[in-house]
């Protein structure tokens, strides 16, 4: 009997802890969004974050998109050969990249690169009292630290994904034409004929949401970090893990909203 009660108590404690975290995160997100939508907006900081999050993520997003496009073309060719549908490679690749792999791969790469950096930077500011110093200097930390990062990530990630889509499709084009025997003209016409504007737009909307999630989790975990270097390290890890999980959950929900007709 005691072991059953102990088990139920553990479930209760875990549920309460989860709800407490969900409540804190919701409040943090509401404060962050309010700071994004109301003045003052720190333009210099926003620009700096856009360069840091967007521009400096280009190499990693570009490279991953290139290899993803290449391997995707190869796999789809090999798979579709089983039922003589090799000609569909270009159209499946472009739909797969623009709708799904482009935003998800870019999101996960940026979560690893930027989410951890945001959490570590804000976490260090927390444990060295720099965030308290901001408050005593009449500066709201949400406006100064959180809003520029959320806005910068939500604005730049769609551009990153757009560039990543183009590079991914180019990678598939290279494999298709140099290795799989497609002509340049037939590959490009298959790509463009079957691609719809909604494929690209849905991917860009996903990218904006992913950018918001990545920056929010980085800021949240950094802002609440405690206990010196160990706390900052844990904040960086938690930011990447939670952003990745939330990103994939949001991906499913957004896909349902965009493409599944009731």
């Amino acid at each position: 009997m005691d072991s059953v009660l102990g088990f139920l108590a553990a479930i209760g404690r875990t549920t309460l802890a989860f709800l407490a975290v969900a409540g804190r995160l919701s409040l943090f997100a509401a404060h962050g969004v309010a700071a994004c939508l109301t003045p003052p907006l720190y333009g210099r900081l926003l620009l700096r974050q856009m360069v840091s999050i967007g521009y400096f993520s280009l190499p990693v997003v570009g490279l991953t998109a290139l290899f993803t496009g290449m391997v995707l073309a190869l796999q789809i060719f090999l798979g579709s050969a089983r039922f003589n549908a090799e000609s569909a490679v270009a159209s499946i690749v472009v739909i797969g990249i623009t709708r799904e792999l482009g935003p998800v791969i870019a999101g996960l790469m940026v979560a690893g690169r930027v989410g951890a950096a945001i959490a570590a930077e804000i976490g260090t500011m927390r444990v060295t009292e720099q965030i308290d110093a901001l408050t005593t200097l009449s500066t709201n930390p949400f406006r100064y630290l959180v809003a520029p990062r959320i806005l910068a990530a939500a604005i730049t990630l769609p551009f990153l994904v757009l560039i990543g889509d183009a590079i991914g499709v180019f990678g598939a084009f290279l494999v298709g034409t140099l290795k799989l025997g497609f002509t340049s003209q037939s590959y490009l016409s298959s790509t463009l004929d079957f691609m719809e504007i909604q494929d690209v737009v849905s991917g860009l909307v996903k990218a904006a949401v992913f950018g918001f999630i990545i920056a929010l989790m980085g800021c949240y975990h950094g802002y609440h970090s405690r206990g010196g270097a160990q706390g900052v390290g844990a904040a960086a890890t938690n930011a990447v893990v939670s952003a990745s999980i939330l990103l994939l959950s949001a991906d499913y929900i957004l896909t349902e909203l965009f493409f599944v007709q009731s």
Binding site: T124, M125, E129, Q130, A133, T136
Partner: peptide, 19 residues
Amino acid sequence: RDALLAKFGMLFQSAALFD
């Protein structure tokens, strides 16, 4: 609250300078 905080200046133990 902003007006109240504007009355204060503080020297932190670690100086808390912005890196």
